[in-house]
Amino acid sequence: MLSAHRRFVTPQTNETIEALAARALPGEPLDAAIDRIKSYNMHIFVMRRPAGLLLGSDVVFVEPPLQ
């Protein structure tokens, strides 16, 4: 049994950040869900050019760091 690791999803084909956030954090208000996704994934939303471009190979965390 592997030790716990930070949960992530990978983008589905042509998935937008809105759709991913709704899928990953169901029950959250959408704006808040998008905010959280961005805060957990600054490698996508800060360092990438263009910022926020979702790639099929991406690791998109759905929770904050665990340690």
Binding site: T10, P11, T13, R48, R49, L53, L55, G56, S57
Partner: peptide, 18 residues
């Protein structure tokens, strides 16, 4: 990334492709 700062082709691949 390439010389236009665009991710290289492999980065657009979904896990199923790999």
């Amino acid at each position: 990334v390439d010389d236009k700062a665009r991710p290289v082709p492999s980065r657009f691949a979904e896990f199923a492709e790999l």
